[in-house]
Amino acid sequence: MKKIALCLLIGSILFGSSVERLKAQLIEYIATKLNAHSPVTRIYVANGLGEEVESYFRDVEVVDRCEEADIIFTKKISALPESCLNKLIFVTSYGSYKRHKDRTIGAFFWQKGRPNIIFNTKKISQLHIELPKEFEKYME
């Protein structure tokens, strides 16, 4: 029975969780490459991603309180405390991005059945963030 449990655990880490692993890679990629002058190392991941995603992070530290984070990944901005609203916020819902465009630097969402990334040009320039060249095609 122990063998089965171990097998299932390893199997789920390697295969069952490939989606979670890719989501973690995506978040880490955005966080680490977002600003060459001021690299992001501490992230706060709120509702919408799941604990499993966090287990795949390698180059960033996940913090428990949004106040301690350099960047926040969240589905609902309305669920964040007031003290965190001045942080870099990246949303994981299209609806949230549309409603709170003035507060977010970008969004990850599905559109027409495909995953999409958008960076909010206005907010990015307000915050004087210098995006790498490969992010330019995602700017809106």
Binding site: V19, L22, L26, I30, P115, I117
Partner: peptide, 12 residues
């Protein structure tokens, strides 16, 4: 980033 998005589209 493109490759991550493409893989995610297939895997998810």
């Amino acid at each position: 980033l493109d490759q991550i998005l493409n893989r995610l589209a297939i895997e998810d």
